[in-house]
Amino acid sequence: MPGIEDLYREIILDHYRTPRNRGELQPPAISSEGHNPLCGDDIRIYLDVADGVVRDVKFSGQGCSISQSSTSMMTVAIKGKTVVEVGAFVRRFKHMMTLADNDEPVDESINLGDIEALQGVVKFPVRIKCATLGWNTLLEALTEASK
């Protein structure tokens, strides 16, 4: 059995206890909701995109330490990035989570920073869905924003 300390790294618990960018954005910011049917968690991502750049991002909802901290760290990382950069960043993250889409190239030189701490989740495959919930919801919000 892999050690629980691989999962609950200090930076993860820090983002869980003190989530960054928690809250809501009013329209015209767009939002998308994601559910984890396994555990009933739900997350809503609010996205303010202008001129192809993520100006602001917030999230609300309920979830476990992994889904909440992963989403919190994600919001910190993507704020100010262009939509294209965010797309590459999400692919890099999903690649780390062993969920890479083979048709999409992954730029392994992208530095995930603190988010690397979530690598331990891969040793607990049931929890990969927790770690990716916010990210998949972000992708939906980005699709919505591009409409």
Binding site: I4, L7, C39, G63, C64, S65, I66, R127
Partner: peptide, 21 residues
């Protein structure tokens, strides 16, 4: 403690409980 986290930690003691809805 979120039930999913709880279930994960209990598993370290081989205690199997369901977490979720």
């Amino acid at each position: 403690i979120h039930p999913h986290d709880l279930s994960q930690v209990l598993d370290q003691s081989n205690v199997c409980v369901r977490a979720g809805h």
